[in-house]
Design a binder for these strands. Structure first.
Lengths: 216, 216
DNA sequence: TAAATAGTGTCTCTAAGACACTATCAT
DNA sequence: ATGATAGTGTCTTAGAGACACTATTTA
């Protein structure tokens, strides 16, 4: 039992972990086993340790659910309305995590009821607590950041084609992009560089060049 | 005395309240009276009430120091590294507030040692706790948001000239802007509208039109 | 060969900056 | 008139989108 002369808050982290899979933007959710919101989907999250950094706590929660570390993780916003958790006063620091597609395979192995589900379907269905709002904010942040950062690359593996990257953008923005213009635009930004490696034959059509993220 | 079976965090809000005054970007700071960091400048802030919304707490702290409500206030980021406050585990939700220039007059009346000080000078001097980082993040956010939002208008009163608005941009970005191009750019965005009111004579030169923020 | 995909060329349109110019005030 | 400030015109340039075209593969 802990004591304090100041009002007692619980501090948690919630993670909106996103992947692009099967042409759909998906988020990692866990099914709640107990009240409140029993049976509803919720974002993975949990209490921050008393000596634990916020970012570390978010990364830990994600690893516990997926076994995979996010390529990119950034603080989203903090949600702390009184009553957002009916049990006690909980302030939650929400994080946006972006994972490459292979992460989908590993989710749900550890945690009993973790699953990657379509963002659109979940928002239509409704999530536990205020996780609807968190998820909406996460997607909005992601959509904005694709425009002027290399965040989209985090959805892909080490090496990727520009068609794969374009596909990520198309799914996140929910609109088709001109392949030629996309090519020029990405090459123009200094975010990626060609590997020069001979591309594995992917299917029909001219084989694409492979790229990797450019570090600087 | 409060008790809990979970780790005990204190949750505070810290406010980076900014104004443009005398051609300088200034922030509201209070001088710390006691350890830790006694005698150092700190951002105004304090504990969140157990039944208080985070945004309300931030607004309250600001009013207690200035007597003025911020025109615009937005959540910045949450800072919660263990050890950021040597006394206990404190997670602070930081807010960016933008106030119109007249607010400068009222600050420091209530609180003993509140003052508007130059952001640059304070950053050179060093603030208490991790408030350097918070302030830097706040200014960075502000600089970015001027480019694609109407946040700059919040530094001005109900009615203003485009020269005044340009002055705000010049101070925040620390570079001169072409008056003609600025005019066209602001008019092009649909953020402001002319009042049509006869302008009060300001000084020498052609009298400017007055504008107000456009609500939609 | 045809179909499919990768990547380039080219045109247009828009927005921003440089800078000359006009408009309207105080002195 | 002169100087100062407000606001417009015009030219150039950079970037994005539309879309035709070339390049290289599979079937």
């Amino acid at each position: 039992m802990y004591t304090s002369k100041y009002p007692i808050f619980s501090v948690t982290v919630d993670v909106a972990a996103l992947v692009v899979d099967e042409g759909v933007l998906k988020v990692l959710v866990v099914e709640r086993g107990q009240e409140p919101y029993a049976g509803r989907w919720a974002l993975p999250g949990g209490f921050v340790g008393i000596d634990e950094d916020l970012a570390d706590a978010a990364a830990r929660e994600l690893v516990e659910e997926t076994g995979v570390e996010a390529v990119r993780m950034e603080q989203l916003k903090t949600y702390g309305a009184p009553g957002r958790d009916p049990r006690s006063r909980v302030v939650s620091v929400a994080w946006l995590a972006v994972l490459p597609e292979p992460a989908v395979a590993t989710a749900g192995t550890d945690a009993a009821k973790a699953a990657w589900r379509s963002v659109d379907e979940l928002l239509a269905l409704g999530l536990a607590f205020d996780h609807d709002t968190i998820l909406r904010d996460a997607v909005e942040r992601l959509r904005g950041k694709l425009e002027y950062t290399d965040l989209g690359i985090a959805f892909l593996g080490e090496e990727f084609t520009l068609a794969q990257l374009r596909h990520v953008y198309e799914v996140v923005w929910d609109r088709e992009l001109d392949p030629g213009n996309f090519q020029r635009r990405i090459r123009g930004q200094e975010l990626v560089e060609p590997t020069g490696v001979t591309p594995a034959r992917t299917g029909r059509g001219r084989p694409p060049e492979l790229f990797r993220a450019k570090r600087d």
